[in-house]
Each structure stands twice: as structure tokens, then as C-alpha cells.
Simulated assay, not measured.
Amino acid sequence: MNKINFTSFNPIIDIQDNILFANNGNVILCYEVKLPEIYSLSEKDFSDIHGAWFQALKSLPIGTVVHKQDVYLKKEYTSNELPDHTFLEKATHDHFKGREYMEHRCYLFFILTKNKALNNSKYVNPFKKVSKSMVREMDDVVKSFISAVRDSISFINNSRKIQINSVLSKEIEQL
């Protein structure tokens, strides 16, 4: 039985800024979402957030996949930033030092799945030449997709209740 070394088959071809190009033809834009604290919003705020998400996501191109991923990490709080000069400050410092808490990070991925034309055997064979018109066509599709996603992100950021930032390429590799 032949063994396959999965580390030699990296699913990522290239990362440019926050844009990931996968080896299956997908283009993925990666963002980190800063959500408001729990129980800090009113019913009207929830309604406003829902409306912003609805308007932003309905303007995306057909076939766009939106993936939201929540990551929870158990960590220990370091109370190094807390002052410990007075009695009350020392008590607070000692109380929180080494306490476990859950760090929450939220990521949002916009995925443009590969074009059906790329499934054609003439684009899969590495020895055949790919026509320049196909590359230009895909380049235009990717550019319009990136533009539409950035418009959606800026619309959500203008709501001022949620902040969405691009994930750096080094962080994408770590994830």
C-alpha cells in the first residue's frame, strides 16, 4: 500500500493581502469580525445589525459562499496591566491573576467557487496551453468579486456596531 504525504499537497497556492487562492480554483477573502460584547445591545441594535447584514450579503454575486467561523480559546488572564499599589488594587490584581477565560475570535470568509469552465479537461491538463481570453475572463470575475465583497464589508463597517478588518497573510498561514 502506498503512503501519501499530505504535507506535500498544500491546498493554498498563493496569499496576497487577505486574498487566498486555493489549488481547487477557489478565491477566498478573509476577514476578522469584532463583535459587540454580549448583552450590550438593545432590541433596536439587533434589528439594525440584522438589516446591515441582510443588505450587505444580498449584494454579493450569485454563487458566493459566506463562511463564518467562531474560535474559542481557553486562556489564563495575566494581570500585569492592572495596577497594584493600593490595598484594593492589589486585591483586584491577585483576584484576576491566573484566572481562566474564553477568548472569542470571529472570522468571516467569502468564497468564490471556481468557474464551471475550469472543469473542462483542457484547463486541467498542465501540458496544454490555456487561452489568454480565459485568464482575462477569470481575472475580471475575480476583480468584480473582490470589489463586491469590499463594498459589502464597508457597508457593514458603516453601521458602527460591528467592525470587520482584513486578516493579514501571516495570520492566514497560521490559521
Results as ranks from 00 to 15, higher is better:
N158D: 10
T7H: 15
D84V: 00
K75E: 12
N165M: 02
L57Y: 11
S166M: 04
N24M: 07
A91P: 13
S147M: 06
I15W: 00
S8D: 06
L118P: 00
N125Y: 11
S144W: 03
D45M: 04
N23E: 00
R136G: 13
S147T: 15
G63T: 11
S169F: 03
A91N: 13
E171N: 12
F127Y: 14
E137A: 09
Q163H: 12
D45E: 00
K3N: 15
A148S: 15
V135H: 00
F127L: 05
K58Q: 12
I49T: 09
F109P: 02
L175Q: 08
E43Y: 14
L118W: 03
Q163D: 12
V167L: 04
K75G: 01
L112K: 06
E173R: 05
T92A: 04
G63M: 01
L73G: 02
H85L: 13
I19N: 01
M102C: 04
E171L: 06
D84Y: 04
K75H: 08
R105A: 03
M138E: 13
I111N: 09
K90L: 05
Y39Q: 02
K68E: 11
I172A: 04
M1V: 09
D84S: 08
F127G: 00
M102A: 12
L118A: 08
N158K: 07
F46P: 05
I15T: 03
E32Y: 00
G51P: 01
I156Q: 03
S59Y: 01
E173K: 02
K3R: 10
V71Q: 06
N23V: 07
E43F: 14
I28H: 02
V27A: 01
G63V: 04
E171I: 09
F110Y: 14
